[in-house]
């Protein structure tokens, strides 16, 4: 693969990553949000695939396939199944901060991410490290979603968004963290989602709802 094509494809994947993160923040219907999340998983897998092709690494190709299966297949499937259990009326997110303001906040977060990740880019300037701010932005947007959403499922998506961003940063820093650690991380994420999914179901059993506004029993 030629250098310029590599850069082009890499940045394209990063752009898709960013765009899907923004759309998750923007859209209201949970079904569509989950679809966006799946798309983001695919974009992440594409990112890893581009890196794999560039470095001619079989191991990285395997990781790309793993990312695709987990983040574009398994996790969205689990989310969709949780959603299917929810009632008709519970299919829209109801953000604490209205969408227009959250979008403007996301704009501010982008600039923050850019400022914060300067030392990272400066340490080893290359096509891949230039894109680190994109990963950091996705992390921050994910955190923002996690903090400002009331539905259990949207918080879950926020958490996963963060995780996608972190994974992207991990791959963009070009040196893998080691296969053991990567496997462990993926497994942990999968388990965390399973746990949260079970808790969502339980919450619906005990509260009849997954609106986290109902969670007011424990406070000082």
């Amino acid at each position: 693969m030629s250098e310029s094509l590599y850069v082009q494809l890499l940045y394209l994947a990063c752009g898709a990553l960013l765009l899907t993160a923004v759309l998750v923040l923007w859209l209201r219907e949970l079904v569509v949000i989950i679809r966006m999340f799946a798309l983001q998983g695919a974009a992440l897998a594409a990112l890893v695939g581009v890196l794999a092709a560039h470095e001619n690494s079989g191991e990285l190709w395997a990781v790309a396939v793993g990312v695709l299966v987990l983040r574009a297949g398994v996790l969205p499937y689990l989310l969709r199944r949780t959603l299917a259990g929810a009632g008709e009326a519970r299919r829209e997110t109801s953000p604490l901060v209205n969408v227009a303001s959250s979008l403007l906040a996301a704009a501010a977060l982008t600039l923050l991410a850019y400022a914060v990740s300067q030392p990272l880019v400066a340490l080893a300037p290359s096509a891949a490290t230039q894109a680190i701010p994109v990963g950091v932005t996705v992390v921050l947007i994910g955190f923002f979603v996690l903090v400002t959403r009331r539905r259990a499922l949207s918080q879950l998506v926020g958490f996963l968004l963060m995780d996608n961003g972190i994974t992207a940063v991990g791959f963009l820093t070009t040196i893998g963290v080691g296969l053991v650690v990567e496997l462990g991380v993926s497994l942990d994420v999968l388990l965390a989602v399973l746990v949260l999914q079970i808790l969502t179901t339980r919450m619906r059993e005990t509260f009849g709802d997954t609106d986290l506004d109902e969670l007011r029993e424990l406070r000082d």
Binding site: L146, A152, Q155, F159, A192, V195, L196, L199, R202, M203, T206, F207, L212, L215, E217, L218
Partner: peptide, 9 residues
């Protein structure tokens, strides 16, 4: 259940 949710998240 509420405590567990907060804990994990």
């Amino acid at each position: 259940v509420e405590a567990a949710w907060k804990y994990v998240v």
